[in-house]
């Protein structure tokens, strides 16, 4: 059960401010409120991995997924983000929406493993950079960090074209990966090089069960 109806959650998430000046190298595309609401609502309604849990949001940007998790009752959500203006907007969003139990840490996600954050979280959620702008494989590096930080499950979005590769990596890591849903991710033309006004890309919503992973 989720404490908020999906529609209501999406309505609240419409109020989350996005990137003021998106940075192309960091692939700062906001997670659309509809997708964030569907993801987090599914995570709670189907798996009860949000309410009363410790949740991380890797590459949280302005906090769309963190805020969604908090609204569905996460006991504490910690968003990790590299970019200074994104963390400022994150904090502004949290203050304006008067949300308790949500923190943002400015840090490099790739430097988190090996610290006290290992196995600190029940659940990790993320909409990682897809690794299309001079940072090939970035989404997979984020996903691997997620499996290190979570004890329960990792939820993430990846381009459908990489499905077989992700399945192979999950086996390598000892995680049980499954595609929850196929999404059409609508990216508005937020950058000048986007010729079409808006473009759909095919994205998979993954759940990685990491409960049986052998960890250091």
């Amino acid at each position: 059960m989720a404490r908020l109806k999906l529609k209501k959650l999406e309505e609240y998430l419409q109020c989350v401010d996005g990137f003021e000046k998106p940075k192309i190298l960091l692939e700062q595309y906001p997670t659309p409120p509809h997708i964030a609401a569907c993801m987090v609502h599914h995570i709670q309604a189907q798996h009860e991995d949000i309410e009363g849990n410790l949740v991380a949001d890797l590459g949280c940007g302005c906090g769309m997924l963190s805020i969604a998790a908090t609204m569905l009752g996460a006991q504490l959500t910690v968003g990790f983000e590299l970019d200074d203006s994104a963390v400022d907007t994150f904090r502004q969003n949290v203050l304006e929406m008067e949300l308790p139990n949500v923190d943002c840490v400015r840090a490099n996600v790739l430097q988190l493993p090996g610290s006290k954050w290992d196995n600190a979280f029940d659940t990790v959620v993320m909409n990682p950079p897809f690794g299309t702008k001079h940072n090939a494989g970035m989404d997979m590096r984020f996903l691997e960090v997620g499996t290190r930080l979570a004890t329960g499950a990792v939820y993430s979005l990846h381009k459908t074209s990489t499905r077989a590769y992700i399945q192979k990596k999950c086996k390598e890591w000892g995680a049980k990966g499954s595609v929850v849903a196929e999404l059409r991710y609508n990216i508005d033309a937020s950058y000048k090089f986007h010729k079409q006004k808006s473009k759909d890309i095919e994205v998979d919503f993954w759940r990685l069960d990491v409960t049986e992973m052998v960890k250091l």
């Binding site: 504490l76 840490v105 490099n108 610290s115 006290k116 954050w117």
Partner: peptide
């Protein structure tokens, strides 16, 4: 920053 978050922060990456 909540002190629950503080509990997990380290400078190990240096």
């Amino acid at each position: 920053m909540k002190l629950s978050t503080y509990n997990f922060l380290t400078s190990m990456a240096i």
